[in-house]
Simulated scan of single mutants.
Amino acid sequence: MRSFRQVDVFSAEPLLGNPVAVVHDAEGLEDEQLAAFARWTNLSETTFLLPPTSAEADYRLRIFTPGGELPFAGHPTLGSAHAWLEAGGRPRGERIVQECGVGLVELHREQGRLAFAAPDRLRSGSVGAEDLARVADGLRIGRDEILDAEWVDNGPGWVAVLLADAAAVLSVWPDPAALGDLAVGVVGIYPEGECAIEVRAFVGGLGVDEDPVTGSLNAGIAQWLVGNGTLPAAYVASQGTALGRHGRVHVASDPDGVIWVGGDTRTTITGTVAL
Rank of each mutant, 00 (worst) to 15 (best):
residue 122 L to C: 03
residue 258 V to H: 05
residue 62 R to G: 02
residue 231 L to V: 04
residue 202 F to A: 08
residue 230 T to M: 09
residue 127 V to N: 12
residue 76 P to T: 00
residue 243 L to S: 09
residue 233 A to E: 15
residue 70 L to K: 00
residue 207 G to N: 15
residue 197 I to H: 02
residue 259 I to G: 10
residue 196 A to D: 10
residue 129 A to G: 12
residue 190 Y to W: 12
residue 183 A to E: 04
residue 61 L to V: 10
residue 106 E to K: 01
residue 173 W to K: 13
residue 226 V to H: 10
residue 52 P to F: 07
residue 69 E to Y: 00
residue 87 A to M: 05
residue 57 A to T: 09
residue 252 A to C: 07
residue 275 L to E: 12
residue 5 R to V: 13
residue 157 G to S: 11
residue 219 A to S: 15
residue 217 L to H: 00
residue 210 E to I: 13
residue 163 L to K: 12
residue 90 R to Q: 10
residue 146 I to M: 08
residue 152 V to T: 15
residue 246 H to G: 02
residue 226 V to P: 09
residue 20 V to W: 02
residue 202 F to P: 11
residue 159 V to K: 06
residue 177 A to V: 13
residue 79 G to C: 12
residue 11 S to Q: 14
residue 228 N to V: 03
residue 114 L to E: 06
residue 160 A to D: 13
residue 104 L to S: 10
residue 243 L to H: 07
residue 80 S to K: 00
residue 225 L to P: 04
residue 177 A to H: 14
residue 248 R to V: 02
residue 221 I to P: 03
residue 142 G to N: 10
residue 235 Y to E: 10
residue 269 I to W: 00
residue 113 R to K: 09
residue 65 T to W: 09
residue 157 G to F: 02
residue 59 Y to Q: 01
residue 237 A to S: 15
residue 168 A to E: 01
residue 26 A to D: 03
residue 27 E to S: 11
residue 262 G to C: 13
residue 6 Q to F: 10
residue 132 L to F: 12
residue 146 I to W: 12
residue 72 F to K: 09
residue 255 P to C: 08
residue 259 I to E: 01
residue 28 G to V: 04
residue 253 S to L: 12
residue 13 E to N: 15
residue 50 L to D: 02
residue 112 G to F: 05
residue 161 V to P: 09
residue 189 I to L: 11
residue 4 F to A: 00
residue 253 S to D: 12
residue 219 A to W: 08
residue 24 H to I: 06
residue 26 A to E: 08
residue 217 L to D: 00
residue 154 N to C: 15
residue 22 V to P: 06
residue 251 V to H: 09
residue 258 V to T: 15
residue 3 S to Y: 10
residue 235 Y to T: 06
residue 46 T to S: 13
residue 182 L to H: 11
residue 40 W to Y: 01
residue 83 A to H: 11
residue 150 E to Y: 10
residue 29 L to T: 04
residue 117 A to Q: 13
residue 48 F to T: 04
residue 26 A to V: 00
residue 210 E to T: 01
residue 69 E to L: 01
residue 164 A to W: 04
residue 260 W to N: 15
residue 264 D to N: 07
residue 173 W to G: 14
residue 141 I to G: 06
residue 39 R to P: 13
residue 158 W to V: 09
residue 269 I to E: 03
residue 199 V to E: 03
residue 8 D to R: 14
residue 107 L to S: 05
residue 35 A to E: 11
residue 99 E to N: 07
residue 124 S to C: 13
residue 200 R to V: 03
residue 216 S to L: 02
residue 100 C to E: 11
residue 18 N to Q: 11
